[in-house]
């Protein structure tokens, strides 16, 4: 694939990916902090959700599109990258957390909309969300620095199997 070799396209797409991440994470974080009762305590939770989350959806869509392009530029090496695999796992867990929050906790929001300190279940969802998105960002940044690359041997058997290395183990 030529994208990785392009002088401007790859850096530009990666920049768009990072900037969308900043907008997405920043606005999602403010919502999560509201769930924890750490900011905007006088603003109804439903207003935060209605006013901010559409922007996070837009940023998320652009992030997925730009991220897919980055993946397709370097597909095999990325697929066998232990940090990429960690990132996808954390992303799935973050998605699961959003699904559980919106299908259970947020459905009864009118009973706690104005609470400065939302109920425990909402606070747990907020804290989990922050932790999981930070894990996505950190493992995402590590993809480019992969010091467990299958081609730079030797690695322990567990690292090789977690990364899905198919090259022969250099220690044999």
């Amino acid at each position: 694939m030529r994208l990785h070799e392009s002088h401007y396209a790859y850096p530009l797409i990666e920049s768009v990916h990072v900037w969308c991440m900043a907008a997405f994470f920043g606005l999602a974080l403010l919502f999560d902090l509201r769930l924890l009762g750490w900011t905007m305590r006088r603003v109804p939770v439903s207003e935060m959700s209605r006013r901010l989350l559409p922007w996070t959806v837009v940023a998320f869509v652009v992030m997925v599109l730009s991220g897919s392009l980055l993946l397709f530029a370097i597909p095999l090496r990325t697929y066998q990258n232990i940090f990429f695999r960690t990132k996808m796992l954390m992303l799935a867990l973050a998605g699961l957390n959003v699904w559980i929050f919106s299908s259970r906790v947020y459905r009864r929001v009118e009973t706690w909309d104005l609470d400065a300190l939302p109920p425990r279940a909402a606070r747990v969802a907020g804290a989990l969300s922050i932790a999981l998105w930070i894990a996505v960002i950190v493992s995402g940044r590590m993809i480019a620095y992969n010091w467990f690359d299958c081609d730079t041997q030797p690695h322990s058997a567990i690292i090789r199997s977690l990364a899905g290395c198919t090259t022969p183990d250099s220690r044999n």
Binding site: A22, A23, F25, R141
Partner: peptide
């Protein structure tokens, strides 16, 4: 990479607070 990741998380927080 670890310090850069912390820098990136900080970027997200400041982006939200400014935006």
């Amino acid at each position: 990479p670890v310090i850069e990741s912390i820098h990136l998380v900080g970027l997200g927080v400041i982006a939200g607070a400014v935006l």
